[in-house]
Amino acid sequence: MTIEGFCDPLFAGVRDAFALFFDQGLEHGGGVSVVADGKTVVDLWGGHADAARTRPWRRDTLVNVWSSTKGVVALAIAMLVERGKLDYAAPVARYWPEFAACGKERITLDQVMSHQAGLNGLAVPMDEAGMLAWTPYINALAAMAPLWEPGSRCVYHALSYGHLAGEVLRRIDGRSVGCFIAEEIAGPLGADFHVGLSAPEDARAAEMIEGPKASEWVDFVRASPFPHACDNPTPRALAPNDRAWRAAEVPGGNGQSTAHALARIYGMMATGGTFEGRRLVGRAAIEEAARPRFRGMDDSFALPAAFAAGFQIEDPVYAGRASAQSFGHTGWGGAIGFADPGAGVGFGYVTNRMLGFDDVDPRRKALIDAVYDAL
């Protein structure tokens, strides 16, 4: 397999690890990128963008990064908090009055951002089309009662997180979350990241491939003792292959990105909010967004978890290597983006071959270990 792109010789171990995935049959197509102290030191890609192996993966190939989208949404919210438009401690109903129905008047933005809002699924049936249309889904969220006492536990809001945070953003800013990201984050940074992909860009979109145990977490969460523990509707591994999914805004999980885009976004945050002379957000706002909101058991997975305001923190994928202030977000099947302010590093990895939990997917850890071996 030919690996294309750029790699600083100091980071040759990242190239070696990435190439090994293809040799071992773990990878089909993807990319990895590292930004260190504001400079791109790794930007590699390889493999194929389609299951039939007729389209080579290119530098500008886009792929659905699932929940890695959540971290970019978290940045958007942090920018509005810094501007005084939002307050993490404020009730969501301050910005979205209809949300106060059925006992939700005290749910805070912080609880939404840290998966403690009791709204990890809908109380009424909803098909995927309703979620993609936005309004039916957010209306159902606004009308329902919490599934459990808000603030009493953490149950991962796999898809509802994005609509909840996104509707708050839309109410206060006037733009959709996808539009805000395009105009305030992706555009200024030159980051090829999209929530809501236009039809002409379809030619760049990779086909998702469901590898071993890719859907095991859906089955695992479905068996949770808590009602609606997996979002309603249940996510489909191959949904990103549909035009309707790509066109819609699903800020909990349908960001289309390159590895370099994730690395640039997190590289900007790792160095205090300024990148290549352009300031997007202040250091204090980043630190406040990355401050811990929850540590304990995520009851959807029955696993330890730690969340900030939309970011995963203390992630075991990079535990022991990255500095304590690191933050980011993984994505279903393999993707990850994170910032390490202590090392000045932004990291992005994307793939179209979705694997299961780390017992069958060693890719993220191997790449991250290689980065820290080079630092």
Results as ranks from 00 to 15, higher is better:
359 D>Y: 13
250 V>R: 01
14 V>K: 13
205 A>Q: 13
260 H>L: 15
294 F>E: 06
229 A>K: 03
35 V>D: 08
282 G>S: 10
354 M>A: 15
310 G>W: 00
189 L>H: 08
300 S>F: 10
299 D>R: 11
186 A>F: 07
197 L>V: 15
247 A>E: 08
287 E>S: 12
180 F>A: 05
5 G>R: 11
335 A>R: 10
104 K>I: 03
187 G>D: 03
88 Y>R: 01
310 G>E: 01
317 V>K: 04
256 Q>C: 07
148 W>R: 04
89 A>M: 02
15 R>T: 15
347 F>V: 11
224 S>Q: 07
95 Y>A: 10
148 W>G: 00
59 R>Q: 15
44 L>N: 07
173 D>Y: 05
257 S>I: 05
334 G>E: 12
108 T>W: 00
186 A>L: 09
208 M>N: 12
244 A>V: 14
369 D>C: 06
233 P>I: 04
87 D>A: 11
264 R>V: 13
68 S>Q: 07
228 H>E: 13
288 E>T: 12
309 A>V: 02
223 A>N: 01
42 V>F: 07
45 W>Q: 09
54 T>K: 15
82 E>L: 02
349 Y>S: 04
351 T>W: 11
150 P>E: 00
249 E>H: 09
120 N>C: 13
308 A>V: 08
252 G>A: 00
112 V>P: 00
43 D>G: 12
303 L>W: 02
3 I>V: 15
181 I>M: 09
221 V>Y: 03
213 K>R: 15
131 M>C: 01
295 R>T: 13
50 D>I: 14
84 G>L: 01
228 H>V: 11
227 P>F: 07
118 G>K: 04
342 G>T: 10
226 F>A: 09
212 P>N: 08
253 G>S: 01
43 D>Q: 14
102 C>A: 12
198 S>L: 13
38 G>T: 15
166 G>V: 10
173 D>N: 11
160 S>K: 00
330 T>P: 09
328 G>Q: 05
129 A>F: 03
13 G>H: 12
137 Y>M: 14
323 S>N: 05
133 A>P: 05
109 L>Q: 02
151 G>I: 04
28 H>E: 12
344 G>N: 09
83 R>Y: 01
112 V>I: 03
225 P>L: 08
304 P>S: 02
166 G>W: 08
89 A>E: 05
202 D>G: 13
344 G>C: 12
371 V>R: 00
287 E>G: 06
167 E>Q: 13
62 L>T: 12
198 S>K: 14
127 D>C: 08
292 P>H: 12
82 E>D: 01
245 W>L: 05
146 P>F: 01
78 A>R: 04
222 R>P: 00
112 V>Q: 00
179 C>G: 06
111 Q>W: 02
81 V>A: 01
352 N>Y: 03
214 A>T: 12
73 V>P: 07
16 D>P: 07
